[in-house]
Design a protein around this nucleic acid. Structure first.
Length: 430
RNA sequence: UCCGGCAUAGCUCAGUUGGUUAGAGCAAUGGACUGUUAAUCCAUGUGUCCCUGGUUCGAGUCCAGGUGCCGGAGCCA
């Protein structure tokens, strides 16, 4: 007999199959039982009739509590009363383990309790859907870059210094000296772009910021393309094409999961290029008109960012930030030395910044000045400066925070549910 | 780090102006029911009321300190 997975159960209509899984829920109405079987690929209703399977097996069925592991043998049939349209008429089943007192019951639970049981919470429908969509997004990102002749080049996690100087780093004991967990792979990405033309790296980043908000993790995943012979406008186009592609892939492949999450599809179905572009200076004007007293030169806070994003129903590209508030490696605008050729993309619905990028500074003297201004250790950057000594070209890149994109597309209010095992200021377990 | 909130059964919560024996739903256990979708109905068990100290004849309830968590700010993807 064939083993079937629930996501492909329609291929086995009117056939007998084996399905390996776990009991998601069970109900009884006298001599007929309804067992929701979960196998990681889907959930299907199994019909257990006492008359059909006999008294002994029916008694074992009664003992199948939530998350008991079983293999079910039965016939697949269409039935409109079953969620998913198919059900299995059980003929036999074998029990691998009878589970007692599974902690997560089909009722409400608090976030702290659920996060303490994250290893089990992953089995729940909603969490399962979020991580399936996360996987689809990761695949879309890789496909997008692979299909556009980018090369994946992994950047190191142990680094000897701060890339941006500003963010807080996790320090580790590296034999007799100190090393830090990477907060970005960007500088290494620039080296790679000069070797491969189009580069991306995709992996975890670490920031020891004491941030307790729904948008922050201490360990999160970031994808960072870096493109040789690309200016800031090329950069914006790559970024918006990437986002549009991701949204389309999720809509095309994960509609079931979006529905489980109750996502309002209207909010994401029109995410197509081009995205609106608005300069930092225009943002200040918009904010001042609305009564916000932010001055030119100040960085946006979270409420300002949300206000700007809410003016549009697509992600919005904000460009031309004051150079003082941005990283040392961003190129100054030749037409206005006060601003840099940097851009952020803000997601709609208050999800905040999902992309930050820029055209990179290529003039070695300007870079040296900026390194001095930021009080960075020049010797740490000698290798990076080599990239400006040997065949330097205009180039650009950006970083996109995976979890924020997942949160936005899923419509999840807190980022901690968008990563399998969240690390925050107050949590490193499980 | 700052501001605000919360902490009572395995879970989610209620608990009156301080009053003697601490409550519900779910989960669990037993039973009824052949089409349930978080099934329903009946029965049964469940407590360091976060910790320490104080006020009081009496504290889950009031006060002080502590701890943990949640939300927001700053910072950022």
């Amino acid at each position: 007999m064939k083993k079937a997975i629930i996501s492909k159960i329609s291929e086995y209509n009117e056939q007998n199959v084996i399905v390996d899984g776990w009991t998601y829920n069970s109900r009884r109405s006298g001599k007929i039982g309804f067992l929701s079987l979960r196998d990681g690929f889907g959930i299907i209703q199994c019909i257990v009739e006492k008359q059909k399977i006999g008294d002994e097996l029916f008694e074992s069925f009664k003992r199948l509590h939530q998350e008991s592991s079983i293999s079910v043998i039965g016939k697949v049939v269409e039935n409109s009363r079953a969620i998913g349209g198919y059900e299995i008429l059980v003929e036999d089943f074998t029990i691998h383990q009878l589970t007692e007192n599974y902690p997560i019951t089909p009722k409400e639970h608090g976030t702290d309790f659920l996060m303490n049981h994250r290893h089990l919470w992953l089995r729940s429908k909603k969490q399962h859907s979020i991580l399936k969509i996360r996987h689809q997004i990761v695949k879309a990102i890789r496909d997008f870059f692979d299909n556009n002749d980018f090369t994946l080049v992994d950047t190191p996690i142990f680094t000897p210094n701060a890339a941006e100087g500003t963010s807080t780093l996790f320090e580790t004991n590296y034999f007799d000296s100190k090393a830090y967990l990477c907060q970005t792979g960007q500088l290494y990405g620039e080296a790679s772009a000069m070797a491969f033309g189009r580069h991306y790296n995709f992996g975890p980043c670490f920031r020891a910021e004491k941030s307790k908000t729904r948008r922050h993790l201490t360990e999160f995943w970031m994808v960072e393309p870096e493109i040789a012979y690309a200016d800031i406008n090329d950069n914006m186009e790559w970024a918006e094409r990437l986002i549009a592609y991701i949204v389309k892939q999720v809509l095309d492949n994960r509609m079931n999961e979006l529905n489980v999450l109750g996502r309002d599809i209207d909010k994401i179905k029109n995410i197509m290029t081009p995205f609106p572009r608005v300069s930092y200076t225009e943002c200040i004007e918009i904010l001042n008109k609305s009564g916000n007293e932010i001055k030119w030169g100040e960085d946006f806070g979270s409420p300002e960012e949300t206000y700007i994003a809410n003016q549009f129903d697509k992600p919005v590209i904000v460009y031309g930030f004051p150079s003082e508030i941005k990283a040392f490696y961003m190129k100054r605008d030749p037409n206005n030395e006060k601003v840099v050729l940097g851009m952020d993309i803000l997601a709609p619905e208050g999800y905040g910044e999902i992309i930050g990028g820029s055209e990179r500074e290529v003039n070695i003297n300007t870079l040296l000045d900026r390194i001095k201004e930021e009080k960075l250790n020049k010797s740490d950057y000698e290798w990076f400066l080599d990239l400006r000594r040997y065949g330097s070209v205009p180039h650009s890149g950006f970083g996109m925070g995976l979890e924020r994109v997942v949160a936005w597309i899923c419509g999840i209010s807190h980022i901690r549910e968008t990563i399998p095992f969240a690390r925050t200021m107050n949590r490193i377990n499980p």
